[in-house]
Computed example of a mutant assay.
Amino acid sequence: MVMIELAKKHLKKVLEVCGANRNCEYYPCHFDGQVCLWCYCPFYPCEDENFGEWIERKDGTKVWSCMNCHWIHKPEVACEVLKEILELTKDKSIDEAIGLLDDREVLLKIRNKVLEKFKKEKKDDTGGC
């Protein structure tokens, strides 16, 4: 069976977004093999100093830098964030979903839930250490 051209075109888009988009001129912006699903982090700026820091621009203003954050680009994290967003928005139109997700508190709840899940799994994997 041969895939139709429209399916190939769509699959290419999915792979570019959900995989390591080696065709991107900025790849890798964080680390080789990163998942590019969240090219623009939905939690930006998270203001969590475990993941980034405020830096000073040339004009003296501050901007949040997550240059050294790898968390959102890990496959298991990227997929879990998507799963949480889809669960929250499953009965909404796209415009309603965007409106809901435009609320910083809603996004931070998703972020915290995913962080806690992976903290717990990490503890489980290390015998609770």
Results as ranks from 00 to 15, higher is better:
M1Y: 02
V2F: 06
V2W: 06
V2N: 08
V2E: 11
M3T: 06
M3N: 02
I4S: 03
E5I: 11
L6V: 07
K9E: 13
K9D: 11
L11P: 00
L11E: 05
L11C: 01
K12P: 00
V14K: 08
L15H: 13
V17G: 04
V17N: 14
G19H: 01
A20R: 00
A20H: 01
N21A: 01
N21Q: 03
R22V: 10
C24H: 15
E25R: 13
Y26W: 13
C29N: 07
C29Y: 14
H30Q: 05
H30I: 02
H30L: 03
H30D: 03
F31Y: 15
D32R: 14
G33R: 05
Q34M: 10
Q34D: 01
V35W: 08
V35K: 10
V35Y: 11
L37P: 05
L37S: 02
C41W: 01
C41A: 00
Y44R: 05
Y44V: 02
C46H: 11
E47D: 13
E47G: 09
E47S: 11
D48L: 04
D48N: 13
D48R: 11
E49K: 14
F51Q: 10
G52F: 04
E53S: 08
W54Q: 02
W54E: 00
W54A: 00
I55E: 10
E56W: 11
R57L: 11
K58I: 05
G60E: 06
G60T: 01
G60L: 09
V63T: 15
V63D: 08
S65P: 03
S65D: 08
S65G: 10
M67R: 13
N68S: 12
N68V: 08
H70I: 09
W71M: 09
W71P: 07
I72F: 07
K74T: 10
E76K: 14
V77S: 04
A78Y: 04
C79T: 09
C79H: 09
C79L: 15
K83A: 14
K83Y: 15
I85P: 10
I85G: 10
I85C: 12
L86K: 12
T89Q: 02
T89P: 00
T89S: 10
T89E: 03
K90F: 06
K90D: 03
K92N: 07
K92T: 02
S93F: 07
S93M: 08
S93Q: 09
S93R: 06
S93I: 08
D95E: 03
A97P: 11
I98W: 10
I98T: 02
L100W: 03
L101M: 10
L101Y: 03
D103P: 01
D103M: 00
D103K: 06
E105Q: 13
E105K: 14
L108G: 00
L108H: 07
L108S: 04
K109I: 05
I110T: 12
I110Y: 03
I110V: 15
I110W: 05
R111Q: 13
R111C: 09
R111S: 09
N112K: 03
N112M: 02
K113V: 10
V114K: 01
E116S: 12
E116L: 15
E116G: 02
F118G: 00
K119Y: 14
K119N: 13
E121T: 06
K122E: 04
K122D: 02
K123N: 12
K123L: 15
D125Y: 09
T126D: 12
G127Q: 10
G127T: 12
G128F: 13
